[in-house]
């Protein structure tokens, strides 16, 4: 069913060549049917959906691959955990030291108080969108929130760039909102056809957000309660093993990892300094979780996707036709 590429609609032309040659004509026919007599916004939405699918095909993020399947399991949790963490950060904002910083990070990697309020509130929006069943809006809000965190941190950092040694840039880049970018990436990487839209699936999210809020609000100070966030993350991952989906523990780990990074990066840095590690070794240690995550995601996505729903009884081998 191949067609001249130039005769295909623009969104369909974005597919990789092999996929376009095999499926382009059929996709174009369905697109034409779906947009016939449709309004302009509906046509734009259809085209954007095809373009997004084409981009997934080109980047290995199709819903038949393991990492997007894990991201789809993680996405609801990301919305809940990000909202809980952000709400806890807003609560402790007046108590941070030095004033105007977040996450216990040092001043140059902080952000202004208005920036903290805006980014904190933005990270609550994906949860509201998910609870309303609006996944596209949740993804947009997630990208906006992560971008706002990076922009606010850069706005704080750039006027002070002259004070920074060149060899400090690496650690500053590590702290400029990369955990929040991981959250946004998980939301975007989750394929629409794998996202849980059921009311029961959404009903548990406020509980997850509240649990994150409590652990982050209570456990942010150094001291015995400082292990509360880590303990909460360990319990969450342990509970994930009770679910039938094999990728669920990976999904939970990915969703809670930014909370751990935000909570403990500066503390680990301090321990490294106190232990006499060099600057480069300290940066390597603090960068290790995110670097390992990137490598893990790449390795995971190279493997064949596990069957999402194995049938209860041995299936017949032949194809059913009518």
């Amino acid at each position: 069913m191949s067609t001249e590429p130039t005769r295909l609609p623009f969104p369909v032309r974005l597919y990789p060549r092999a996929y376009r040659e095999a499926n382009g004509a059929e996709t174009a026919a369905t697109y034409a049917d779906a947009t016939a007599r449709a309004s302009l916004p509906a046509r734009i939405a259809e085209g954007a959906g095809i373009a997004a699918h084409a981009l997934r095909m080109r980047t290995g993020l199709g819903s038949d691959r393991p990492f997007p399947q894990a991201a789809a399991l993680a996405a609801p949790l990301v919305a809940a955990v990000a909202a809980g963490q952000s709400a806890a950060q807003l609560l402790r904002l007046p108590h941070t030291s030095p004033p105007g910083t977040l996450d216990g990070l040092h001043q140059l990697a902080g952000m202004s108080v208005p920036g903290a309020w805006i980014t904190g509130l933005l990270w609550c929006l994906p949860l509201l969108a998910v609870l309303a069943g609006r996944w596209t809006a949740a993804k947009v809000f997630g990208v906006l929130a992560a971008s706002a965190v990076a922009a606010a941190r850069l706005a704080w950092f750039l006027p002070r760039v002259a004070e920074v040694q060149f060899d400090q840039l690496a650690s500053l880049l590590l702290e400029v909102g990369l955990p929040q970018l991981l959250w946004a990436f998980l939301l975007v990487a989750a394929p629409r056809d794998l996202l849980d839209t059921s009311p029961p699936g959404r009903a548990t999210l406020p509980v997850a957000a509240l649990a994150t809020y409590v652990t982050a609000a209570v456990g942010w100070r150094p001291g015995p309660l400082g292990v509360l966030v880590l303990a909460g993350a360990v319990v969450a991952v342990a509970l994930a093993f009770t679910r039938r989906e094999r990728l669920y523990p990976v999904a939970v780990l990915l969703a809670v990892l930014p909370v751990l990074l935000v909570s403990y990066t500066s503390q680990v840095t301090l321990w490294c300094w106190n232990a006499g590690l060099s600057y480069d070794a300290t940066v390597a240690v603090t960068a290790l979780p995110l670097a390992a995550t990137v490598v893990g995601i790449l390795l995971l996505n190279r493997r064949r996707a596990p069957d999402v729903q194995p049938p209860a009884s041995p299936p017949p081998a032949d194809t059913v036709t009518f």
């Binding site: 969104p11 369905t30 259809e46 095809i50 699918h53 819903s63």
Partner: peptide, 27 residues
């Protein structure tokens, strides 16, 4: 209640074909 868009549909069809839950009947 559920309106599936073209891009979402073909993403799901690719996955279901890969999982051998559906097959192409004819063209």
């Amino acid at each position: 209640r559920y309106r599936m868009r073209t891009g979402t549909l073909y993403g799901a069809l690719d996955r279901l074909l890969g999982q051998n839950l559906i097959a192409v009947d004819r063209e």
